[in-house]
């Protein structure tokens, strides 16, 4: 299996990368989602722009209320605690459950978000954390909430010439708790259902996300287990009953697990 031919370039800096992305070119960092599609010839871009080693995309900047991570940071760096964490361990936990170690060593947080697979871990987890996707484009820099950045499965607000440069994640209070439960048929496989919860009473935050639902993950309005399950039934009424059962199971287990999460 070999992809359709494409041009390759590795720009010297971010400005050159943004310029190179204006045509029929795809950015590639870890390439752990894009390369399978290239191999299967489902994707045939004219050119790849390699941004894996862009220094600007590997930076972390810590502000008092949020941490901003460069888009090209690999999942394994989060898993290993090699980057600062303001989420009481939630991001570390989520990163460690993404695909397989060999994939986590190369795949990046920005790439996962750009790919916008509804079953991906970061999409749901970062929506629960109320993070912002930082997009650099012709119009400057814009911060998008996850559920507006995604327009649907595999579809985002990104246009030619746009690049995700980072993700900004609010710091949780020390007392905040979180839960993340996903159902996979095999370890490392795409999730069939994700329940993600962040409870931070000191900041007045309680966010429940139902994810891996084939479309953009949804933020629930419910504040209890029963209400959350009922809301899933009503808002996702057009999904298959078996799928809905998985969503509800993941959600119940996440909410029940919230009490057990250590800060």
């Amino acid at each position: 299996m070999k992809p359709a031919a494409f041009d390759y370039n590795k720009p010297a800096d971010l400005a050159a990368a943004l310029h190179a992305l204006s045509g029929d070119a795809k950015p590639i960092a870890g390439g752990q989602s894009l390369t399978p599609m290239l191999n299967l010839r489902l994707a045939r871009p004219a050119a790849l722009v390699d941004i894996r080693r862009q220094a600007d995309l590997l930076k972390i900047s810590e502000a008092p209320d949020a941490i901003r991570y460069g888009a090209a940071l690999p999942h394994a760096a989060f898993e290993d605690g090699a980057v600062p964490d303001g989420t009481n361990g939630m991001m570390r936990h989520v990163a460690g459950g993404i695909a397989y170690r060999a994939v986590r060593n190369r795949g990046t947080i920005g790439g996962s978000i750009a790919h916008a697979d509804p079953a991906a871990d970061w999409i749901s987890a970062l929506l629960a954390l109320d993070a912002r996707v930082i997009v650099q484009g012709a119009k400057g820099e814009t911060a998008w909430p996850l559920d507006r950045f995604m327009l649907g499965g595999f579809t985002t607000v990104l246009e030619a010439g746009d690049l995700i440069t980072g993700v900004s994640v609010p710091r949780l209070s020390p007392s905040a708790r979180w839960a993340y439960y996903k159902i996979c048929r095999k370890t490392g496989e795409f999730a069939k259902a994700i329940g993600a919860v962040v409870s931070d009473p000191d900041r007045g935050v309680f966010r429940i996300v139902c994810g891996a639902i084939e479309v953009t993950p949804i933020l629930l309005e419910a504040r209890s287990v029963e209400a959350a399950l009922a809301e899933i039934d009503s808002r996702l009424a057009d999904h298959a009953p078996a799928a809905r059962q998985l969503y509800k199971t993941a959600m119940r287990r996440a909410l029940e697990g919230l009490g057990e999460t250590s800060a």
């Binding site: 590997l58 930076k59 972390i60 900047s61 810590e62 502000a63 008092p64 209320d65 949020a66 901003r68 460069g70 940071l73 760096a77 090699a82 980057v83 600062p84 912002r132 930082i134 400057g140 820099e141 814009t142 911060a143 998008w144 909430p145 507006r148 950045f149 607000v157 900004s168």
Partner: peptide
């Protein structure tokens, strides 16, 4: 990886 401390959050326009 380089972690840098910023006194203020970077200026970014909210969507």
């Amino acid at each position: 990886f380089e972690a840098r401390h910023d006194a203020v959050a970077a200026k970014t326009v909210e969507a």
